[in-house]
Amino acid sequence: MLAFSQPAIAAPTASAFVSELSEQAIAELRRTAMADTEREDRFRRLFLQSFDVDTIARFVIGRHWRTATPVQQQRYQRVFPEYVVKVLSKLAPVYSGETIEILQEQPIEPDGDVLVRARLRRTDVALARIDFRVRETAQGPRIIDLVVGGISLLTTQRAEFDSIVGREGVGGLIASMERMLP
């Protein structure tokens, strides 16, 4: 609870990063009337600047990365961010006055990540728990995973990808991701 109120920490903390990002996200998505493409563009900007996209892409394809051909690997790395942006902008509800209240920071052993636990609120109503898994990278803090109400985006995506690769191979996975994009 008090991890980020200790005066000894000089560097910007993971919770400061998350609260800055959520303020930015709220400012960007606040405008009510917005075309789908405009909304996607904003999601893309937020996603690319604040998530460790490469790490996420590799984690969710898991062991199947090694069975992919170099060409498939390149195609996968190209299509993955676009696919996530598409899914996120479709699944995230239209912004209607929610705020994100940060509750506490929790270190994750052993890899040094920090779990920032937060709550999505609308005025007085707590809507959902959101945990941000944050990693300090060479580019600064980046989000590795979002856990909403106990459901991890990474775990879900990895399970889904694993199932598709099992049925249709890596090529089938990439093709079905590409089909979702215009």
Partner: peptide, 12 residues
């Protein structure tokens, strides 16, 4: 918080 998976870094 459940036990979280270990996620290696792959930043290019």
């Amino acid at each position: 918080t459940p036990p979280l998976p270990i996620i290696p870094s792959y930043s290019r």
